[in-house]
Design a protein around this nucleic acid. Sequence first.
DNA 1: CAATATAGTTAGCCTTTGCTAAGTTATTTT
DNA 2: AAAATAACTTAGCAAAGGCTAACTATATTG
Lengths: 158, 158
Amino acid sequence: MIETPEETPSPSLSEADALPPSEQHAQQYAAVRNAHETELLEDYVELIGDLIEHQGEARSADIAQRMGVSQATVSKMVARLKGLGLVASKPYRSLFLTERGEEMAAMSRQRHAIVLQFLRALGISDDTARIDAEGMEHHVSEETLAAMQRISQQRQSS
Amino acid sequence: MIETPEETPSPSLSEADALPPSEQHAQQYAAVRNAHETELLEDYVELIGDLIEHQGEARSADIAQRMGVSQATVSKMVARLKGLGLVASKPYRSLFLTERGEEMAAMSRQRHAIVLQFLRALGISDDTARIDAEGMEHHVSEETLAAMQRISQQRQSS
DNA sequence: CAATATAGTTAGCCTTTGCTAAGTTATTTT
DNA sequence: AAAATAACTTAGCAAAGGCTAACTATATTG
């Protein structure tokens, strides 16, 4: 059997030296799995909010088109969102956000904007920034988000 | 909570004005879905590589513990990785990476290191940086990765 | 070397998120 | 107002990624 070296030596950035203690390591993965669970929900809610704001209403067909997904998939997802109390609607009518849905949409939109703005401040091209932001936004902690905001502003005023 | 910067004076970053054309929007989501498909695979491969490097071998039980997942789940996942030609092993023996697996592990490790280093350069606390890096690494384009690397170096030498 | 403990596998279940195909409701057009 | 089109829903399927329980193989140890 192999001995587990239970020590964390380097303070900075030598990344080849040791695995984190397995408990911590597991927590990292758990955090990611967790983020994945809410991620899609947030994307839908955010999109629904955006559609309402920009086009006056959120229709399943538009969501399907923008998500690049079939209408059936949207229908099923919307049922889930309704079950979670984030979305409301009557059958065959367009969608609304509940109060909780609005809150979630606002948060998401804000996160999204901060990340996007940060990437652009880094000089990332627009298309890439959009794609990366979409993927990253759900994995960025409050702490990092704050740092991003700070740096965007710094870079802006120089 | 984060301050809402509802005053976006700069020209390039008003995010409340228009949705992207739906085709482009759909592509963004497709990119995220795509990333999700390879994400876990990469995490496993990266971890297996790390275990081999640091402990001499990669055993299912260790993977399960570090991933925070049951051994049965690991077993199933490993079967998938073998099917994809990334991992090799004989039943009841420990795991190896194929050449393709090695390549993937090297790429992943590098991405991971760059993102982690970048977050630390931003002043993010260690635990948070680890968690965020784990989540973000799969959603960062080459372009953004390069920018991160550049900035880490800048910040280091100041 | 037999018994026990540990490690790995398999079977069977569940949920999520996609799909297509078929059915229903609403809207538009003639 | 009937017919046609568009929008939405439902049913049923599949793959991924979790789980527990039961089984099999390997390693340890008394």
